[in-house]
Design a binder for these strands. Sequence first.
DNA 1: TGAGTCATGTAAGTTGTTACATGATTAC
DNA 2: GTAATCATGTAACAACTTACATGACTCA
Lengths: 181, 181
Amino acid sequence: MALRYALLGLLAKNEATGYELTQQFKETVIHFWTAHHTQIYRELLKMEEEGLTHSKTVQQSDYPDKKIYTITDKGFAQLLEWMLNKPVNVPKLKDDLLLRVSMFHFIPTERAIDFLEKSKEHHQMGLMMTKKWQEENFPKGTYGENELGEYLTSEFGIRYMESWLSWCNWAIKVLKKKGES
Amino acid sequence: MALRYALLGLLAKNEATGYELTQQFKETVIHFWTAHHTQIYRELLKMEEEGLTHSKTVQQSDYPDKKIYTITDKGFAQLLEWMLNKPVNVPKLKDDLLLRVSMFHFIPTERAIDFLEKSKEHHQMGLMMTKKWQEENFPKGTYGENELGEYLTSEFGIRYMESWLSWCNWAIKVLKKKGES
DNA sequence: TGAGTCATGTAAGTTGTTACATGATTAC
DNA sequence: GTAATCATGTAACAACTTACATGACTCA
């Protein structure tokens, strides 16, 4: 059900196509949720059936037709009802790299360090991109009326990646000390 | 497939029952993976069919029978093959609270702060428990030969929760400043 | 010449969740 | 008496992933 509310939340700010929603997931929602485009299209269909959204198809000359979704009053009401009255579920993390880390004692130390270096690169890139995005969208910490949430979660993303990087450095140190002995 | 390797990794350290594996998930694996007991039992059955594990049933007088699983050579070989040669998947996060945070502009500021205070409590508790667990299992940063992974991931858990708490405090400040104006 | 963007989806398969079931024992 | 622990599972359903499909256009 949560994917549905993530989509309603985005639509409550701006009308959008399934494609655009998928892009927004990659840009901003990625800090706390993941979804494939196939999932998004399916959920949009279901929501329209239930009257939470409304769509109009727009013909385009050069590009394929697109379907623009808007949120309905019923959709917005249900979004608020969820936000205010539904219990908060526990977070669910699935991290493939950390799973490997938990078994580092089975592989050579150099190989383990390799994994961590790759992960550092990955998070360094993510950190740079998110920082740039935040500076462009919220210069000097200023945010628009309906942007508060995005501002807060983007800051979470930055801190999360910084904390990842610092942990990576710490773990590499531990492994190097172990390699010496 | 990753759940399978998480289980093989635990079994490579010690034989265990499905119940014990579920407990270990709650204690240590929780920092990077989640799974219900129903999923764990199902995966254990599949793994035995494929010869990756082997089980023996032990009768108990007072408690129900239990099935103790051990990893086979084939299982260990497959675990190493995965660790060393399979690409690392991107992490997947589903955080219900952050999803709500992303829509904080729709609800009253006091209510939003409330959510963050609850989350602080939750992470504070988790932090304390993990710290205590780490001190008991790795006093002064000393770890056994096959405990390296657990040591590294428990430290990740601690840093993760600390970073959560500091973000919560920051976000509450932002909201209070907004409430004043 | 191949990769990427725009734009939407179907179908099949794998995971993950929820509710239910058993039944004795121990702790508050 | 109510809940929790020990220990294992089935069944039904919901969510998620992967592979495939279309087809014009742009950029290196």
